[in-house]
Design a protein around this nucleic acid. Structure first.
Lengths: 192, 192
DNA sequence: CTACAATAGCTAATGTGATTAGCTAAAACA
DNA sequence: TGTTTTAGCTAATCACATTAGCTATTGTAG
């Protein structure tokens, strides 16, 4: 006994397990087993039980994604930065399918907390968009479109929902190019 | 007894309940209650239990969406048709939040079945794209981008994930315009 | 070094929902 | 009318989450 666990270790184990077996298979029973303790002991770390664990998992996921994205954007600007960020997002999800499920799945319950969680990621996109000289509203549209496309594309991709053999990389590049063109068009409007 | 239920009625009740209380709250217990029967009786209609019910819910959702989309596209072509389809998709989800959760949530488990379910919706998009004289591959890119954007945008929107007060309609229109421009650019490439 | 406070872990018990087994009566049909 | 089918039921089981209450380790004040 006294295995020496803490919230962080437990969340990381849960995230790992989610990536391997899917979030739906992360149960307190099996998680406790993995950690070498009994299910009730988990309540010493998460008094809110499974619900709280899932929430923490969601927050952990968004924090991790944010840091990946930040790293990816370092030293880049404008289109290069956006492309790097989008690829970082996509790669993150490819590596963390289960965690991404938690990030999404949890939507269904919370909303306040979820907004805060995504805040970081969203603000990075806004920062990058500063360089284009767009209006606030224009930036909002771009960020929303990017978020929507990224979440949907990556979600469908990770579930094998795109059946056609055409390489997904090509589609991803095409979509990014299309969105970047959209930004250019907005700049045109603004500069007139 | 002999209430006279069948698969269809049960699925519709479940879909309704999902829209009202969220898919996670559609339990066999509560569904049976709603239908005036006992939980075990549901197994007479869904021998696979909750799992099968969820699958049927997913299929029902995609069939419904397909028919909405089809109706929306009647008598329209090109950009008008695409815009109508996208709005139909978005409106469908606004009216059927819970069912949409089922359509998505179920991804996590199946894949074969999900592919077939979305087939109908995808093929409508392909049909509409016929009018633009694009290559097969170009059509694939457009359809994938549209699907990705729609699913992501609408999913974030329906969970209240877009915090900014800027009207979501404006963003939706902007995004559609951007994608339609993308189609125009591809036409340019092809026609050269 | 010792007493004691805090706490991470445990066992036992409870609760909720899904599921299975087996019964029964209504409905359908020869 | 007699027989078969079947939708529904009750009782029982299972799986997992959760709660209550105990215990031993840890860490800390004196």
């Amino acid at each position: 006994m006294k295995v020496g666990l803490d919230k962080k270790k437990i969340i990381e184990a849960a995230a790992d397990m989610a990536d391997k077996k899917g979030i739906a298979n992360v149960t307190l029973k099996v998680l406790a087993e993995e950690l070498g303790i009994k299910p009730p002991s988990l309540y010493k770390h998460f008094s809110g039980g499974l619900e709280e664990l899932n929430k923490e998992l969601m927050l952990y996921g968004w924090r991790s994604l944010e840091s990946e994205i930040t790293r990816a954007a370092i030293g880049k600007a404008k289109d290069d930065a956006i492309i790097a960020i989008c690829y970082a997002y996509r790669n993150f999800v490819a590596k963390h399918k289960g965690l991404f499920e938690a990030m999404q799945w949890y939507n269904m319950y919370q909303s306040e907390e979820h907004l805060k969680a995504t805040e970081g990621t969203v603000s990075i996109l806004f920062q990058v968009l500063e360089a284009y000289g767009l209006s606030e509203e224009q930036k909002v549209h771009i960020v929303r479109m990017l978020r929507g496309f990224l979440q949907g594309f990556v979600s469908i991709e990770s579930h094998g929902g795109y059946g056609n053999p055409t390489p997904l990389n090509d589609t991803f590049d095409f979509a990014l190019k299309t969105i970047l063109n959209g930004i250019r068009d907005l700049q045109g409007e603004t500069e007139q």
